[in-house]
Design a protein around this nucleic acid. Structure first.
Lengths: 208, 208
DNA sequence: ATTTATATGTACTAATTGGTACAAAAATGT
DNA sequence: ACATTTTTGTACCAATTAGTACATATAAAT
C-alpha cells in the first residue's frame, strides 16, 4: 500500500563516502507517521518516537532537524499516500466505489480494533489549530489538496452517470468529507451505533 | 447566560464554623470550564488552571480532588449550560431558530475572534478517546443526552410544521449535530471559506 | 592507510508536569 | 478564650519533556 509513496519520496541518494546509513529515511518516516497517527503530535514523546522508528537520538537529529520538521514530513507523506491509494482504487473499482470504500474502511477499523484513528490531517488540524502556525498552514494546504482530489473523483463519477447529484463536484466533495470527518469525531465522542449507522447511510446519499 | 447553571449547581452550603471560603465553588468551576474549553484537558497545566481560577494549589486540592475530577465537573456543567441555553432560546425564538442560532454563533465567533473553540464535549471526546476511560464514558453519556435534547427541539419544530423532513426527530438531530461538529473540525483543518459557507447552507437544508 | 561520514551510548540541560506536605495566618462559631 | 476550618505560601517530590554535547566505534570511498 505504501510502496508508491515510498517511490515518490525515495531519496535515491547517490552513494557518498563514509559509513552508509543503516536505516532507510522513508521507511522510518512511515513508522513515525503511524506513531503520530496513533498518538497525535503533542502526545508523542521523542523517546516513544525513537523506539517506534528504531533509531537513536543522535541519528534522529542528524537526519530530521526536529520533532516538528519530522511531523511536517509525515503530513506530506500522509496526503501523498492517501491520494495515491484513492487513485489506485479508482482504477480498480471506479471513482464512486473508491470514495465509499473510505467510509467502509472506517467502519471496518471500528469493528476490528474497537476504535478509529480518523484522518491524520483532521486530527492534526484540531491539535495544531491556534498553536502551531506553520503546521496549521501546511495542514490547510494538504486539506484543500485533498478536497480537489475528491472533487476529481466525483467529477469522474458524474461523467459516468454514477452520481446524479446536480451540485458541483467540489461542493459534493466538501460535504462528503465533512460528513466523514464528522462521523469520526461523533464516534470518538461515544455516539450510539444507531447514529453511526445512519451517518453511513447519509454518506451514501451524498454520492447518489 | 450562566446564571441558570449557577443556580442549578449552587452548593448553598449551610454556614459551618471556621474561616469561610473566600471563593464560590461554582464560580471558579465556570472559570475552569472556560479555560479547559480554550486549551483542552491535557494542554491545561495545573498552574495555568490555578491562575485562571484565582485560587491556590492547597485550596484547589481541598475543594476538588484532582485535575480529572474538576474536568469531569466542568463537562457536566457544560452540558447543563448548553441545554439550558437551548431551552431559553426555544422559549424566545422557537425550536428551529434555536438550533440555527447554534451554527450562527459558530460563524459569529469565527468572524469576531478569528477562531472557533468548537463543542467542549466533542473536543474532549477526541482528546480522551482511548486514553481516559472514565472521562470517555462520561462524554458519551453527555453527548447522547444532548442528542436527545436536540431531538426534542426538532420534534417540537416538526409538530409546529417548521420542519418538513420526514425522517424521525432523533435521526435529524444526529445529522445536524454531525454536520455542525464536522464544520468545526473542517474550519480547524483550514478549509476554504467557500466550503464553510456551503456547510452552513447544508445545516439549513437539514432543518427544512 | 587515511579520510569521511555515520553509528551507538551516555551524560547532560533547564523547564515543566501533577501532586503532596506542612507551617503559619486569619476568620468564624461556640 | 478556644476550637475549628480554610487561607496563603513555600518547599518539596519523582517523572518527563525536547534538545545538546561528546567520546568512541565502524564502515565505506579514495
Amino acid at each position: 500500500m505504501y510502496h508508491l509513496v515510498y517511490n515518490t519520496l525515495m531519496t535515491n541518494k547517490i552513494q557518498t563516502r563514509g559509513r552508509p546509513k543503516t536505516f532507510d529515511e522513508t521507511e522510518v518516516l512511515i513508522l513515525a507517521m503511524h506513531h503520530f497517527w496513533e498518538h497525535g503530535y503533542d502526545k508523542t514523546s521523542l523517546d516513544s518516537l525513537l523506539k517506534a522508528m528504531g533509531i537513536k537520538k543522535s541519528s534522529f537529529y542528524a537526519t530530521f532537524k526536529s520533532k516538528e520538521e519530522l511531523f511536517s514530513k509525515t503530513l506530506e507523506l500522509y496526503r501523498e499516500q492517501t491520494i495515491q491509494s484513492l487513485r489506485n482504487l479508482k482504477e480498480n473499482v471506479g471513482a464512486k466505489e473508491a470514495m465509499l470504500t473510505l467510509s467502509e474502511l472506517t467502519i471496518k477499523e471500528l469493528k476490528e480494533t474497537g476504535k478509529v484513528r480518523g484522518c491524520l490531517l483532521v486530527n492534526s488540524g484540531k491539535e495544531c489549530y491556534n498553536r502551531y502556525e506553520d503546521l496549521s498552514r501546511q495542514i490547510s494546504h494538504e486539506f484543500n489538496f485533498m478536497q480537489n482530489m475528491f472533487a476529481e473523483l466525483i467529477q469522474d463519477a458524474k461523467d459516468k452517470g454514477e452520481i446524479k447529484n446536480p451540485k458541483d463536484a467540489k461542493t459534493i466533495a466538501g460535504r462528503y468529507m465533512n460528513t466523514l470527518n464528522g462521523l469520526i469525531v461523533t464516534i470518538q465522542a461515544g455516539a450510539s451505533s444507531e447514529l453511526i449507522e445512519d451517518l453511513i447511510e447519509n454518506l451514501k446519499e451524498i454520492l447518489e
